[in-house]
């Protein structure tokens, strides 16, 4: 029996395409988000609240923490404590930071919750987790190359690669090539 490479080309393109749809969406959406990282934070939202309490009178670490817990009605001890300068004390809780201006009693409460779904997509897209995802991302990259190649041979005739396809492929090659040449010499 003759080996029908076009039929296999179609089968593999279709099934690997199905398998890759979710990852294509993740990389595509995250790509849009992180492309504009200079203009916005694609991972976190920043929440800031100013709370005004009476000026702090304590000096030592334990006393400042105790005074802050009373004034800010915090039930638990902070995870950590830091003095960035002589007038500021910072109290760190899980996901929340209190920066206290001791002489005035002005407290900046900050939280940076993640943007749901988008954060996870960005972590996968940028391979922030490293580990096993590196291999999955490699497989996905190979799958994309494979789909690019098999996609070229999906159709025959006027709409195939030998017809109008070659012009589109040519334009597709020219776009990054021309951009790079202009970038180098402009």
């Amino acid at each position: 029996m003759d080996f029908n490479w076009r039929a296999w080309n179609k089968i593999l393109h279709r099934d690997i395409g199905y398998l890759s749809v979710a990852t294509v969406f993740i990389y595509g959406i995250s790509g849009l988000a992180v492309n504009h990282i200079a203009d916005w934070n694609p991972n976190y939202t920043r929440q800031k609240v100013i709370i005004s309490v009476e000026p702090f009178t304590s000096i030592g670490k334990e006393e400042i923490i105790a005074e802050a817990k009373t004034k800010l009605q915090l039930a638990e001890d902070p995870q950590n404590y830091f003095r960035p300068d002589s007038s500021t004390a910072q109290l760190f809780y899980q996901g929340i930071t209190y920066s206290i201006d001791l002489p005035t009693g002005n407290v900046l409460k900050e939280a940076s919750p993640t943007r749901p779904v988008l954060f996870e997509m960005n972590q996968l897209h940028l391979n922030a987790t490293k580990g096993f995802w590196t291999y999955i991302a490699d497989l996905f990259a190979v799958a994309l190359i494979f789909m690019g190649i098999t996609g070229l041979f999906m159709l025959r005739g006027k709409t195939g690669l030998s017809g109008r396809g070659k012009w589109f492929v040519g334009f597709g090659v020219c776009i990054p090539l021309m951009y790079w040449i202009l970038y180098l010499y402009s």
Partner: peptide, 22 residues
């Protein structure tokens, strides 16, 4: 009143915000 900045290469290490305070 002292701290030091620990800078890593972009993308090689990505620190999440959740570790703040630890």
């Amino acid at each position: 009143f002292e701290s030091i900045r620990f800078k890593v290469e972009d993308g090689v290490i990505v620190f999440p915000m959740e570790i703040k305070g630890q």
